[in-house]
Deep mutational scan, measured.
Amino acid sequence: MEVRTIKVFTTVDNINLHTQVVDMSMTYGQQFGPTYLDGADVTKIKPHNSHEGKTFYVLPNDDTLRVEAFEYYHTTDPSFLGRYMSALNHTKKWKYPQVNGLTSIKWADNNCYLATALLTLQQIELKFNPPALQDAYYRARAGEAANFCALILAYCNKTVGELGDVRETMSYLFQHANLDSCKRVLNVVCKTCGQQQTTLKGVEAVMYMGTLSYEQFKKGVQIPCTCGKQATKYLVQQESPFVMMSAPPAQYELKHGTFTCASEYTGNYQCGHYKHITSKETLYCIDGALLTKSSEYKGPITDVFYKENSYTTTIK
């Protein structure tokens, strides 16, 4: 009895394709271990004539594949690729409408935090270190965002349907971005203890939790000093293409032309909904596939993004 075979390709990165001759009487799992086709788990399936010449994702289970996976995804987590594939199996079914010149995501599976993050990423200057993220990001900007969303979920250790947080998501993504040249110098002034300067680099240099107003941050924000008295913390120097200011959701007025974009969060910790506000020729609110415009805006804002380049204080 002759062994019926077909020729397929296996890959971990969709760049390096490895030619395989597979036995049609055995499952993919018996031949390769966990195997995925377009995100779908085909591990328990036997090869079919229609699979001839198709590319299958496999887990990096030998040295060659491990090197290829690390170079593309910059992670050695053995569960990463499987999590990416199972997320992709959902995100490829989502709709990605162009809204006001940006790629958004039609609401499904509690994905409003991903839509808000995706919209924000198209408006701030950011370059990702893992080629996987950078490639998928370019495709997302062009309207094909399924891979990018699935990668975000995998890097953030999230599953489809789980509630997510924009600030946490951005923080994970910033860790995989090139923020080497970003720098922030802060000064804390206390009447009792004097003053202390701190220099922050990388992710810490672009994120701040405690106030939404970048102007206020430049002037000074009140913080408790270690001595128990009130101290003032203010920005001395900022070198970065953008800054992200966050605070627990509270009524906040966004003035046209003073910011790049913002995240609105309605609801409580267990259950809520994100919308995205962007400042173009007027203010726009993007909620999944829905767009509304207004000249002014007041609502429960939790993150505001500002364009920056270089700032030095005039406070002496």
Rank of each mutant, 00 (worst) to 15 (best):
I152A: 14
K275V: 14
A108D: 09
L118T: 05
Y274C: 06
G53D: 09
T292Q: 11
Q20I: 09
S310I: 13
K255I: 15
L118H: 01
C261T: 02
T91Y: 00
Y96W: 03
A136K: 04
Q197S: 12
A231C: 08
N268L: 10
K92M: 11
R184L: 02
E68G: 07
G288M: 00
Y155R: 01
V206F: 02
T27L: 13
D41W: 06
D23Q: 12
N89D: 12
T282P: 00
F305E: 00
K92A: 08
A289T: 10
T314N: 15
Q175I: 05
Q196Y: 15
Q195N: 14
K54R: 14
W94M: 03
K293A: 13
V42C: 13
T91D: 04
L37D: 14
Y96D: 04
V58E: 05
K54C: 14
I15T: 12
T116N: 09
Y36F: 10
D165E: 12
Y214E: 00
T192D: 14
S213L: 05
C225L: 01
Y57R: 05
P241N: 07
I15L: 11
V67K: 10
Q123G: 05
L119C: 12
K44W: 10
N309C: 10
P97H: 12
T232G: 02
K7R: 11
Y137K: 03
S86F: 07
Q123A: 07
T11H: 05
G257E: 08
A142W: 14
Y138L: 15
G143A: 04
F128D: 03
S104G: 07
Q134K: 13
N129D: 08
S171H: 15
I105F: 03
E168M: 14
P249E: 01
L114R: 05
V189D: 14
P78E: 15
Q197L: 10
Q31F: 12
H74P: 06
N49C: 15
Q123P: 03
E144Q: 09
K46Y: 13
G267L: 06
L102V: 07
E125W: 04
F305K: 03
E168S: 12
R184Q: 07
T266A: 07
C156A: 07
S294E: 10
K92S: 10
Y208R: 04
F305I: 14
D135M: 11
K183A: 05
G210W: 04
I124Q: 02
F217V: 14
P224K: 13
Q175G: 10
K275M: 07
K307V: 12
N89F: 13
K92D: 02
H18F: 06
T226E: 14
R139E: 12
N268H: 13
G82I: 12
A69M: 14
K293E: 15
S246G: 03
D180C: 07
V206S: 01
P249I: 05
Y269S: 15
A115W: 01
S25I: 06
M207T: 09
A205C: 03
S86N: 13
N111R: 03
T5E: 12
I152R: 02
D62V: 07
R167W: 03
V8P: 05
D77T: 06
R66P: 07
G288Q: 00
G194H: 02
H90D: 09
P241Q: 10
G39W: 07
Q222V: 09
I45K: 14
L151I: 02
F242N: 00
K158A: 06
F174V: 03
K46P: 12
G82C: 14
C285M: 15
G82T: 11
G299S: 05
A262Q: 00
V185E: 06
E52R: 13
K219Y: 07
N178W: 03
P34K: 12
I124D: 02
E239I: 12
S79R: 12
H176L: 13
F259K: 05
Q270I: 10
A117L: 02
N14K: 11
Y311D: 08
Y73R: 03
N129K: 11
C261V: 00
A154N: 05
Y113E: 03
P131I: 04
Y155L: 02
Y265W: 00
R66D: 08
Q197V: 12
Q98C: 09
Q230W: 13
D165C: 15
Q30R: 15
C227S: 02
Q238P: 01
L121N: 03
A140H: 04
I315L: 15
L254T: 00
K316S: 15
D13C: 06
F242T: 01
C271T: 07
G257W: 01
A150S: 04
Q30K: 15
I45L: 15
T198F: 13
P47V: 08
E168V: 08
C285Q: 15
R141E: 08
D63F: 10
R66S: 09
Q31C: 11
C261Q: 01
D109Y: 03
P130W: 02
Q238T: 02
N147I: 11
Q196F: 14
